[in-house]
Design a protein around this nucleic acid. Structure first.
Length: 114
DNA sequence: ACGTTGACCTATA
DNA sequence: GTATAGGCCAACG
């Protein structure tokens, strides 16, 4: 795969349980601010990646579970999040601002990767 | 090769 | 606060 995808997967794996991030934040961290859609495409392939990529911890900027349809079932993503202590109501992450995990802030730089 | 689609985001009104 | 437009670029038919 391209390095871009691998980088996306690396960042997603850094998201701690019970926290969530966004496509745009990851794209921005990888230097592709305008290409947040590519992060979504990377997630589409995330299910086939080894090791496991916690794609359920990645939601859109509004905290909406827009990618839930790509999981096994419609409630799989929500179930996974709730099993980690993340409240999800009406396909939306509760206290998204508080649970938001920004790689730009948490990792500070690319030194945490590789 | 071309048009459409898509797990998105920002800007403007 | 919502609505609309534009940009982004890989994958698919």
């Amino acid at each position: 795969m391209n390095d871009f995808y691998q980088q996306v997967y690396q960042v997603v794996r850094q998201i701690p349980p019970g926290r969530v991030s966004s496509y745009g934040a990851i794209a921005s961290y990888l230097g592709a601010r305008g290409s947040s859609r590519m992060v979504g495409w990377a997630m589409s392939n995330a299910g086939r990646q080894i090791p496991y990529v916690p794609a359920h911890r990645v939601v859109n900027r509004n905290g909406l579970l827009t990618g839930k349809h790509h999981f096994g079932s419609e409630i799989a993503m929500q179930e996974l999040l709730e099993s980690e202590g993340v409240e999800v109501i009406d396909d939306r992450v509760v206290d998204f601002d508080r649970l938001f995990w920004d790689p730009l802030v948490e990792l500070e730089d690319a030194g945490q990767l590789f």
